[in-house]
Amino acid sequence: MELFKSSKSDGKSDELLLSQYHESKDLGLLGDVYQRHTEMIYYVCFRYFKDSERSKDAVMQIFEELIGKVDRQEIKNFQKWIYVVAKNHCLMALRADKSQKVDFSESFVEFSVAPHPEEDYATKEDRLQAMERCIEKLPEKQKIAIQLFFLQEKCYKEITTLTGYSMDGVKSYIQNGKRNLKQCIEKEQDV
């Protein structure tokens, strides 16, 4: 499913339009590509700024950055690339804004463990066993939240109902649990 594709898309991929932009230097092509991801960029900015006007300004500023950067970098996946650019822009802006104190360690979302489609059944079984051992080692709240969310497939809201944790708490326990779980599994594999 294409998440943030613009309705104005003419069927050409982002990368094809970028290629055409490199050849023609027609800023309209770059604008068309960027418009496909405007929503994503806006909400990423809103997630950090918590301010609509600032987020809108950031969207336009990122587009200006884009004009300079797109020629200097090889872009294989524009959506991921522009997300990184947008997020970095917002984080840099917040860092420059001395009035705002942001705990970036809390804000960052860790990438999930990459799938390993090429690994065989035995390896996969080993990883699952390692994961079960690591889950048992997690702090109680993280362990409960991880088990309810990943194993029993409960949503945040259900978890709050079942556990009495706050919504933010559930999200935090899941995120921290994922991070600890990842570190634990990597440690188990090293051993």
Binding site: M40, V44, V109, F111, S112
Partner: peptide, 15 residues
């Protein structure tokens, strides 16, 4: 949870 960008967007919409 599997996509950092999607999580950011979701958090932005929630905000």
């Amino acid at each position: 949870e599997a996509d950092e960008s999607l999580m950011d967007v979701l958090l932005g919409i929630e905000a």
